[in-house]
Design a protein around this nucleic acid. Structure first.
Length: 791
RNA sequence: GCCGAAGUGGCGGAACUGGUAGACGCGCCGGACUCAAAAUCCGGUGGCCCUCGGGUCGUGUGGGUUCGAGUCCCACCUUCGGCACCA
């Protein structure tokens, strides 16, 4: 009598066993231990515990990582698979404000709940390595790294226009402004002139375009390349006739220098304030205060003549100098030579203000009206003109980037305090390393109000200057949470280290991450920042690698009602109800069975019934096999062959193709065939194979059925290997085509020669009817597949 | 506008290297079991035609290459994503 399939009872029991045995605990290699050759770092982006529940997208992500983890572990890999919490930052803090209470309490309560959900789903996580960004043991090292960046000149303060979110009351990085809006709350950002901390990401702009040793999706690399926006061109000096100053322009088209008919500077260009007419200054003040998106949305170009003239270094022409907001201060040099004949924006401006236009490139792409450069192809002309400017000391070839430095100071409470001290005498001074961590203090009111909440704790703020000992103030800003996530994956390898962020030998053993899984929405943010961190840390000798993530996979969005699940939309669905109804195994299988993991998928829990049916069928069939199949099972026969084919298919799909839904189909096929002959001599082997192959997907039910088949501890059994000899078929179905259309198919011996195959094909009645007695003009034979007659 | 990805049954999708289109599952239809229902099991399920043997059309659209195209090439349409007053 087959017992009922009771997922909850089974799952609770095995989860207890794994926890008691610390089954998925992964030690670092000992100091004298030779490093394992086949180690594997399996990582999925860590969750924000901003709500009390995982959502379905998390379940997809972490279950995918779990399947990888189980298959690799059982294939003999030393697998690191940690978990942690991106606990600092706006989402977490805003949630706390919404719900009331202290961010720490709310966040820790959320972490408790989510950790319990993760355990309920049975994911094979090494919980000994759990870290959270908000713990002093973690952010001490975030602060330590910040000091290192500062010391090395890669973190600095400057006054600059920054994106200000009026709702969240803080600065937002360029990377997280989407369509002019705060990525977090959707509020349009404003431009504010503020002194902020920046990381010098631009120092690595060129190298960030390359991916040495990293196998990344093309589209992600393209997104990053677009974001970095490298443009080759030239910087050219124009003398201002009235003042004698030189003003540099950046252009990607030095070949069009003879076509420059006017000159434009950005409203924020220092030249305007220094020399321009009052009209122009007035215009610049108004225009400069508006965000670029708003300016760009305008149909008409605006600008004012400054009253000054610039001299073209190649031909001495006097060009009017205008100030206009279509020129951006923070790209290139903030000034351009305008060539309306060959630039759409300059053309619009010229049309609006009736400025001259002169074409200098003809239809064949050759220079004209360019003195001695006439007749040169554009590319060659550009080189020649730059060479001539260089010789005269009036220009040079250069490169410009769209990428800006990362502003990471936040005027909010819930983050790692920036370990800097402001002293009237000494300026901005680093907190000495031995004073770390600078603990996040309690404050009366952490709600955003435009000024850093930490500043309200006067006792905390007042500090002695570490340099002169005089009275000084702490920096009241906190760090962007993306600073935490730029290095968390390196803390996992050595999470209890209290001497250093991590030990170099341990981080070099595990890193780079072998397989990273996460959303493509982090392409220009987290993924770029992490690469920047690792490159800098490699330059300082902290780590022995230059890319953090060797392989990257982006899961698709799980949508609900056609749109991406998100808290702002309020269409988030968690796994709890389904787990309560069907158990963790069914949910795990279903989320992966829904479709290719890299494509968006609409969440329709209705289909879970099919998976539940499959699990019950598996349960019943395995019990039948255990009772009825011969104990000393044969490993040959139709079922054994199918089992071997399934092993090959599942292994290849998971490890090589990173495809998770087709292996489930393959095991379903195997179980369907097994169900038709549970007493066959090779049924036991097929059942064992099916259970073993489904274990990474449904580890609890697989473990239970493994026991039913008389075995133990499936989670540590070697991953099955296909018997190659069984994959070779003795017969195959020959397809016979006439003019490419299938006319017959029948089983033939695999050993037949091509001539014999053709002969057999010609014997077919149906084929003869189409050939109609004549000789085929041509015969194509595809070995082990088909014969095609052309008539 | 530039760059990238994708269009296959009623639905999710499979077909990996140019070789049987629609695996697997959902849904639906029919049958068995049952007093009945649920559950379970068995069978069927792209369109059209049919003398029930089969025929024919069919992978966004139009062309092309090939003995053979969902797969390769060209043009286009649609959807999604990135960049965009970045000189």
């Amino acid at each position: 009598m087959t017992p009922r399939y009771e997922p909850h009872e089974i799952e609770a029991r095995w989860q207890r066993v794994w926890e008691d045995e610390r089954a998925f605990y992964v030690p670092n290699p000992g100091p004298d231990e030779p490093p394992a050759a086949n180690h594997w770092y399996q990582l999925e982006m860590l969750p924000y515990p901003s709500g009390p529940s995982l959502h379905i997208g998390h379940v997809l992500n972490y279950t995918m990582g779990d399947v990888q983890t189980h298959v690799r572990r059982r294939s003999g890999w030393h697998v690191l698979r940690p978990m942690g919490w991106d606990a600092f930052g706006l989402p977490a803090e805003n949630a706390a404000i919404r719900e009331g209470g202290h961010p720490r309490e709310i966040i820790e309560r959320n972490i408790e709940r989510i950790r319990a959900q993760m355990k309920r789903l049975g994911w094979a996580i090494d919980w000994d390595r759990e870290v959270s960004a908000h713990q002093p043991t973690f952010y001490r090292w975030t602060q330590w790294l910040f000091l290192k960046f500062w010391r090395e000149g890669l973190a600095y303060r400057k006054e600059a226009p920054v994106n200000w979110c009026p709702k969240d009351q803080t600065v937002v990085a360029n990377e997280y402004v989407v369509d002019g809006r705060c990525e977090r709350c959707g509020t349009p950002v404003e431009l504010r002139q503020m002194t902020q901390w920046f990381f010098r990401t631009t120092a690595y702009a060129d190298e960030l375009l390359e991916y040495p040793g990293a196998d990344w999706p093309e589209r992600t690399k393209t997104i990053q390349r677009n974001w970095i926006g490298r443009s080759e061109g030239a910087e050219i000096l124009f003398r201002i006739e009235e003042t004698g100053d030189d003003v540099a322009v950046f252009t990607t088209r030095p070949d069009t220098l003879f076509g420059a008919t006017f000159f434009v500077v950005a409203p924020e260009h220092p030249f305007v304030e220094a020399h321009a007419s009052e009209d122009a200054k007035e215009y610049a003040r108004r225009a400069g205060a508006r965000p670029v998106e708003e300016r760009a949305a305008e149909t008409e170009k605006t600008g004012v003549f400054t009253g000054l003239h610039a001299v073209n270094p190649v031909n001495g022409e006097r060009l009017q100098v205008w100030v206009a907001d279509y020129v951006l201060m923070d790209y290139g040099t903030g000034a351009i030579m305008a060539v309306p004949a060959h630039d759409e924006r300059d053309a619009e401006f010229a049309a609006t203000f009736d400025l001259p236009v002169r074409a200098v490139i003809d239809e064949d792409g050759k220079l004209v009206a360019s003195a001695e450069f006439d007749g040169l192809p554009a590319a060659e002309g550009a080189r020649a003109i730059v060479a001539r400017l260089e010789a005269a000391g009036r220009g040079k070839a250069t490169v410009s980037y769209r990428l800006r430095d990362w502003s990471f100071s936040r005027q909010r409470y819930w983050g790692a305090p920036i370990p800097a001290i402001h002293c009237e005498r000494c300026g901005v001074v680093p907190v000495p390393e031995e004073d770390l961590p600078v603990l996040l203090p309690e404050v009366e009111d952490y709600a955003p109000k435009g000024k850093a909440p930490l500043a309200s704790n006067e006792e905390w703020m007042r500090v002695d200057c570490p340099r002169c000992g005089g009275q000084a103030l702490r920096d009241a800003d906190t760090m962007d949470t993306f600073v935490d996530s730029s290095w968390y994956f390196m803390r996992y390898v050595d999470p209890h280290n209290d001497e250093a962020p991590f030990d170099r030998s341990v981080v070099d053993y595990w890193m780079p991450v072998d397989q990273y899984i996460g959303g493509i929405d982090h392409s220009t943010g987290h993924l770029l920042y992490s690469r920047f961190f690792v490159k800098a840390m490699n330059d300082w000798g902290l780590v022995g690698f230059r890319e953090p993530f060797a392989r990257l996979f982006h899961q698709g969005w799980v949508t609900l009602g056609g749109s991406k699940m998100s808290k702002t939309r309020g269409n988030v669905e968690g796994p709890d109800e389904l787990v309560a109804q069907y158990g963790a195994d069914a949910v795990r299988l279903y989320i992966l069975f829904m479709g290719p993991a890299d494509q968006d998928m609409e969440w329709t829990p209705a289909g879970v019934e099919g998976i539940v049916r499959f699990l019950r069928r598996l349960w019943r069939v395995v019990h039948e096999v255990a009772e009825r199949a011969p104990a000393d099972g044969a490993q040959q026969g139709a079922l054994a062959r199918k089992a071997n084919e399934t092993i090959a298919k599942v292994t290849d799909d998971v490890l090589r193709r990173f495809q998770f839904h087709t292996p489930i189909s393959a095991v379903m096929e195997l179980v369907n065939e097994l169900g038709a002959a549970p007493d066959a001599p090779d049924a036991r082997f097929a059942a064992e194979t099916a259970v073993s192959l489904i274990q990474p997907y449904g580890p609890h039910v697989a473990e239970e059925l493994w026991g039913v088949l008389g075995h133990e501890r499936l989670w540590e059994q070697p991953w099955p290997e296909a018997d190659e000899s069984q994959l070779v078929r003795e017969t195959f179905e020959l397809v016979v085509q006439v003019n490419g259309k299938v006319r017959d198919r029948f089983e033939v011996d695999a050993g037949l020669s091509e001539e014999e195959l053709v002969a057999r094909a010609r014997e077919s009645e149906r084929v003869r009817a189409y050939i109609d007695g004549g000789e085929p003009r041509k015969t194509i034979v595809v070995p082990r597949k088909l014969v095609n007659f052309v008539v």
